[in-house]
Design a protein around this nucleic acid. Structure first.
Lengths: 335, 335
DNA sequence: AGACATGTTGTAAACGATTTCATTTTTTGT
DNA sequence: ACAAAAAATGAAATCGTTTACAACATGTCT
């Protein structure tokens, strides 16, 4: 029973029509007569025919998939975004290819490669540090930046990072804190920069003086949060509350602080950023800024599909609002 | 400069050779003369030629990608596995397509679809609940089951789950616990079953009586862990230590227990399963069974590539050892 | 009835590569 | 120097679709 996979030819033969008619029945049923359509459908059923996407894509001059370039696939933050993109792309008949920008050596070259290779009809770029050297490549597919972005260069979907930072600081100030510190992400990262800026703005709005020594540098990872905690623990003149630029850092920070025998929020109040799922189950549950990850993924996919549809490389950007999720990691300061 | 993308024809023309020679220079350089090869390479450079993968794949009768079917893309557990698979597939010139088996309505139909559609040259199946009704489809691509598995039906890559469970129980017993409970995953899940079995075996090995009322049913999520905690808190004759079938449940459990004012490990010892990254930063840090996720992803990809290469649908299975990571969530029982 | 629109179908040319087979060119052995 | 073997190349078929164009049938309007 080494039965071959059947092609459109087999269907045409079985239905007694031409391949053109079979093709039309599948992709534009309106133009074929009711009776023929039924015959073709029956032939498809009896032959077990499946369209060969490779052949279709070759003829249609497209690839049928979208590629997501992520800085670090292992980061759980992205998992939910991928799920959301997938939920939009699958019904639209697009596959979702995944690639890690950090994995190999020359990330930028690989980005250009993806742009030129025709492997994908569109590209979602989650890594703001990658600027394809020349974006004005003739026939390149549309790109949308997500989460991170490059000023003006590409359409993007992102949250209002500065606003999130301001919400965090305001929340701490309203709890009575006057000594508020901040932990940044990698210094060149756009997210780090805007959140730091929002932090500074709200500090000013609250009439608080910025203290450069209360701004710690992290890299978004839990370990870096723990490192900052050790610095914080070692200093005497230290902030009574911290806004950290990612939940992961906040987790690392709280873990290390608690490990040292101090308590959150009694000894230090903490606000994170992202609202990853786990933080609601911590002790104490972490107050944080929610990024609607599902929405980000969906919108990125939708906007990209729109650009592909109209075959344009420019398109609208979208800024998604954030909200503060108050939990138990913030309390009024001591004394 | 609305310059068209150049094809192999353009290269052939520029180099003054036939397309066959260009093709050979690219995929089988050995057979073409040094001098022509150089001329062709130069022509490729000057035309900016990139091979069209769709055309190549059509001719070669393959799709050039592998698809990973995951029960729940949003689950961070899988992120690292994807990263690992990607690191193997990318150098081998395969793309990685991602699909969510839970997203739509009829998961099993979609699985069959992927098997028949020719969209992928191979398939990694992370969802043990999906048994493609008939695996003996004539020309179907190879499948490898990962993490979860179906008895005998498919080659698989998985960890020694029962052994992990035994390590966990032994660790608790060695700390002095005699009242040891267990929280399972979904009851029909193969992982739940083998871990439960390992739990029972080691209980017996330690001369401890199994107590059915100390076996709680969860579903691997944090929320289900929290629900179990509430049941545990409400009972009087309760275990002094629990082995939970996933880290996520352990997180939920510890969170709820601590929230209720009890302490881990003073009031209850806890062991999880998976060793997801966050658990090392919890307070207390969670003792758990490590699953080498990177290794799982790599081996799954490698075995699958092997099967694709030899175009066989059967292949070897692999059981990867686990290890216990002792941390702070286990202590001797009270009194 | 003739002209014309409308609806349905088939023919055949793409899409851009790979690869078989035949043909040329070069090398080798005597 | 000539035949035979080896190496390098090209012509053309092929992979499985889609689609522009032509062709035919049918119906409608004067």
């Amino acid at each position: 029973m080494d039965q071959k996979i059947s092609t459109i030819q087999d269907v045409a033969r079985a239905a007694g029509v031409s391949t053109a008619t079979v093709s039309r029945t599948l992709s534009n049923p309106g133009v074929v007569a009711e009776s023929t359509r039924e015959a073709v459908m029956e032939a498809i059923r009896s032959t077990g025919y499946r369209v060969n996407h490779t052949a279709r894509n070759l003829r249609r001059q497209r690839s049928g998939s979208v590629i997501a370039l992520m800085p670090n696939l292992a980061n759980p933050f992205f998992a939910q975004i991928i799920a959301a993109m997938s939920s939009v792309l699958t019904p639209a008949q697009y596959g979702l290819l995944i690639a890690d920008t950090q994995a190999g050596p020359d990330a930028e070259a690989r980005l250009s490669h993806y742009l030129l290779s025709g492997l994908a009809d569109g590209l979602v770029l989650f890594d703001g540090s990658l600027t394809p050297s020349r974006l004005d490549i003739p026939g390149r597919p549309p790109i949308i930046a997500a989460c991170e972005w490059m000023d003006g260069a590409l359409p993007s979907v992102r949250v209002d990072n500065a606003c999130g930072a301001r919400l965090a600081v305001r929340h701490l100030a309203e709890a009575g804190h006057r000594r508020i510190g901040h932990v940044t992400g990698p210094p060149r990262n756009v997210l780090s920069v805007s959140r730091l800026q929002g932090f500074r703005e709200e500090l000013a709005a609250q009439g608080l003086e910025p203290r450069p020594d209360w701004i710690y540098e992290g890299d978004f990872t839990m370990d870096s949060g723990a490192m900052v905690a050790r610095k914080w623990l070692a200093s005497t003149d230290r902030p009574s509350a911290l806004f950290l630029s990612s939940d992961e850092m906040a987790i690392g920070f709280m873990g290390a602080v608690q490990h040292a025998g101090l308590r959150v929020p009694e000894d230090v109040s903490v606000v994170g950023f992202d609202n990853i799922e786990v933080v609601g189950h911590l002790t104490p549950a972490l107050t944080t800024i929610r990024q609607p990850r599902t929405l980000i993924g969906e919108r990125a996919a939708e906007l990209l599909l729109g650009m592909i549809e109209e075959s344009r490389t420019d398109g609208p950007s979208e800024v998604i609002p954030v909200e503060l999720i108050p939990r138990a990691s913030v309390a009024p300061p001591r004394e």
